[in-house]
C-alpha cells in the first residue's frame, strides 16, 4: 500500500540551519496492515507521515501509494492521494472551523465533489465509527467537550473513506477512559473497513494492544519495522532510543532470564495471567 525508496527530507536546505529530518527510509506497508509508529520527539515520525499524503515533498527518494509514484508528473494523482490517505494531526480539534458538526465532517467529502446523498451517507457512517450521536449534528463544534471535538475531527477524516488512515497521537492529552474509547473506535474502523491504519503513539502499551506491526523511528531513520513480538525482543535497543517495552513484558523477560519456561510474547495483563495459570497447571502435573 505504501512503499518508500531511499526517502529523505532535509529542512532549511541551503541555510546554516539545514537539518536532516528523515534519511534513507525504505519501507513497505501492506494493504490492511495496522502499523504502530513509535519514536521519541524529533525522531522524524511526523515528517515521515506528512510525506504519505503529499504534504511534504521528499528532498530525495520516492514514495509509492498503491503502486503509483506520488511525485510523478501526474498532478491529479497527487490530489487523489490526499483523499486516499487521510491524515489526522495531533490535537485535531484545533482545526475545527465550521458552524455545525455536520458541516465540519462534510467538508472533506464535499471537496471530493460527491453528491449530497453520498456526503450524507458518509457523514452518518463516520459519526457512527467515532461514536457521536445524531443530537450533536446541528450543534457548533465549539460547544462540545474536548473529547467530543476530537471525535468530530477524526470523523472528518474518516468521512473521506481513505484507503489509509494515519493518526498522529489521537489519544494525546485524554484520560485513560477517553484513550481506550478512541483507540477502540479506531480498532473497530480498521476491522470493519479493512483499511490500512498508521497509529503514531508514544505508548508501547497502546501500540502493542492494537497494531500488527511496529515501525520504530530514531534519529530520522527507520530503525525497525517488524511484528510486535519481534520489536519487543529488542528491548535493550529500544531503551537506548529512549523507548520502553510494556512493564508486563519486562516481568516475563526477567522470569525467562531466571530460567522459567515462560513465553517472551506477553504484552497485556490477560496474556500474563494466561501464561502464569498455564505454568501453575503444568507445575501441578509435574508434582503429581
Amino acid at each position: 500500500m505504501i512503499k518508500t525508496e531511499h526517502l529523505s527530507h532535509f529542512y532549511s536546505v541551503g541555510t546554516p540551519f539545514e537539518t536532516v529530518a528523515i534519511e534513507d527510509i525504505n519501507l513497505h506497508i501492506k494493504k490492511g496492515e495496522y502499523v504502530g509508529v513509535i519514536g521519541h520527539t524529533g525522531s522524524g515520525k511526523s515528517t515521515l507521515i506528512a510525506h504519505f499524503n503529499a504534504i511534504l515533498k521528499p528532498t530525495s527518494g520516492k514514495i509509492f501509494i498503491d503502486g503509483k509514484d506520488l511525485w510523478s508528473e501526474d498532478k491529479k494523482q497527487r490530489i487523489q492521494t490526499r483523499f486516499d490517505v487521510g491524515l489526522v494531526f495531533q490535537y485535531p480539534e484545533h482545526q475545527l472551523f465550521e458552524e455545525t458538526v455536520y458541516k465540519d465532517i462534510a467538508f472533506g467529502p464535499k471537496n471530493m465533489g460527491l453528491s449530497e446523498e453520498e456526503i450524507h451517507r458518509r457523514v452518518e457512517k463516520a459519526m457512527r465509527f467515532v461514536g457521536l450521536s445524531e443530537s450533536v449534528l446541528e450543534k457548533s463544534p465549539f460547544d462540545l467537550s474536548g473529547g467530543q471535538k476530537r471525535r468530530v475531527a477524526i470523523a472528518g477524516v474518516m468521512a473521506l473513506e481513505p484507503k489509509v488512515l494515519i493518526l498522529d497521537e489521537p489519544a494525546a492529552g485524554l484520560d485513560p477512559m477517553g484513550r481506550d474509547e478512541i483507540l477502540g473506535r479506531i480498532r473497530e474502523y480498521h476491522q470493519e473497513t479493512g483499511s490500512t491504519v498508521l497509529l503514531v503513539s508514544h505508548s508501547m502499551e497502546d501500540v502493542s494492544k492494537n497494531a500488527d506491526s511496529i515501525l520504530v523511528m530514531n534519529r530520522g531513520r527507520c530503525q525497525m519495522h517488524a511484528s510486535v513480538p519481534e520489536v519487543f525482543e529488542r528491548a535493550d535497543e529500544l531503551e537506548k532510543m529512549g523507548l520502553d517495552v510494556p512493564r508486563i513484558t519486562r516481568v516475563f523477560f526477567a522470569l525467562q532470564d531466571k530460567g522459567y519456561p515462560v513465553s517472551r510474547n506477553v504484552f497485556t495483563v490477560e496474556q500474563g495471567k494466561a501464561e502464569i495459570t498455564r505454568l501453575l497447571k503444568e507445575g501441578g502435573k509435574n508434582h503429581a
Binding site: P246, V251, A254, V269, G272, K273, I276, T277
Partner: peptide, 27 residues
C-alpha cells in the same frame, strides 16, 4: 500493569499479595 496482573491472578483464586508496584517485586 504489575498490580493489575496480581489482581487478575487473585480473581482466579491464585494467592498472591496485591501490593506489588514494580517489575522486580512482581517477578
Amino acid at each position: 500493569q504489575t498490580a493489575e496482573l496480581m489482581f487478575a491472578l487473585r480473581q482466579e483464586d491464585i494467592k498472591v499479595p496485591i501490593s506489588v508496584l514494580n517489575v522486580d517485586e512482581c517477578v
